[in-house]
Computed example of a mutant assay.
Amino acid sequence: MKVEIDYDLFDSIKQEEDVIELNYLLNIILYKNRHSVYVTDTRVFKLEVYDSIPKTTQSVIELFFTQNVMTSEEKDCLICFDGASFDDEKKFNLVEGIRYLSQPVSIIVENSFNDSHFFKAIFRCFDDSEIINKHFENLWIQFENSGGCSNIINYIKGRSQFYNDRSKFFRCFVILDSDKLSPNDTNDKYSNVKEFLSLKKIAFHVLEKRMMENYIPDEAINANIHERYNKWKNAYLHLSELQKDYYNIPSGFIKVTSQAGKKTSKRDKKKEIKKNQLDALPEQVKNLYSDLSSSNFESLKSGLSIPNIKSEFPKFFNCEHTVYKKSLLQRTRHQRNPHELSDIVEKIMKLI
């Protein structure tokens, strides 16, 4: 994170306690190159308080000053004398700056244990700088469990109370499964969540595919699915790339609502599907899988039945010889946004 410290903040420091807090802030910023610090006003270098800063720290500040003169990069937050008067903009006073910059970045997911495998794979493959991995090693990034998509707003509201409802303190990124049944699914179940997060100025991303499991490359399916599940595996690998994007791997075609929108029990859905095959499914699902043979439909209809699939299947992302940059790009090259995974990494990089 690029942190600018304003001249007025330096100029306001008169007491010894303030000097200690300033040095503490600078230590947080510069410890193991966690952040970058920028001073853009040369008058800072002439202040008495600047002389109280350790010489090694001064050298780093002056190096960043030189870089800033050459590039004039936009800063991510500002530490200034009147920072406490701002609730939403990333402007902080000295004490607030310490609080904001010392907290880890939170990646908020529906299930922090299972979903973390997907994120770690895309960090490994798309962060060539390895900065994100460094932040993980130093516990500067953490996964947090929202408890499901329906609880995200309540979860954020709880965090807001901790910060007295001042959104500028949030250093988090929310990731959501789209849960779409097809690429043309217009049922935006997250419209209220997205509106809420936008209002709070919290970064978020809704996956283009149905869920995280749909990003697993074919190589990982081939390598990790036991031969006893060959019927399912062969039928799955015969799907088009788009069909794989919206197929529910754990539940198959069972976990969909009826065409009329009426929810039925899992047992009743199995009966409907067995009797009517694709005709029992919503129109958009039926159209997407219209070329599916009856035998492949039979193999796929109930999903992949490996034990503990919700926790075990995401672990396939850890397999480095099947999940790598090229194989993930292969699974996303046909998307509306083929750069989706690198875009996610870029969004998170802006927070660190």
Rank of each mutant, 00 (worst) to 15 (best):
K347N: 07
E283N: 13
D8T: 13
I221Y: 15
L22Q: 09
K266P: 03
C77Y: 00
I344E: 01
L329H: 03
F297Q: 02
Y100E: 02
N111P: 09
D179G: 02
S129F: 03
N214K: 06
Q284H: 11
N287K: 15
E346K: 15
I61C: 11
K194F: 04
I273Q: 07
H321E: 12
V60A: 10
I61D: 08
S59P: 01
Q161M: 12
E62Y: 05
S295T: 13
V19A: 04
V3M: 08
N151D: 05
S178Q: 07
H334C: 02
R124A: 13
Q161V: 06
V193M: 08
P104M: 10
D179L: 06
E213L: 07
K310Q: 12
E89R: 09
F119K: 13
V95N: 15
H238I: 00
I152H: 09
G147C: 11
Q259K: 13
L30I: 04
A223Y: 03
D165G: 03
K262D: 02
D279Y: 06
I348K: 00
E195T: 11
D51T: 11
E144W: 03
S265Y: 08
S59V: 09
F196R: 07
K91W: 00
C80Q: 12
N248G: 04
P250T: 07
L199A: 12
D218H: 09
S112I: 05
L239M: 10
K262T: 12
P183E: 06
L281Y: 07
I53G: 06
K266N: 14
A260R: 06
L176G: 00
E219L: 10
D128P: 01
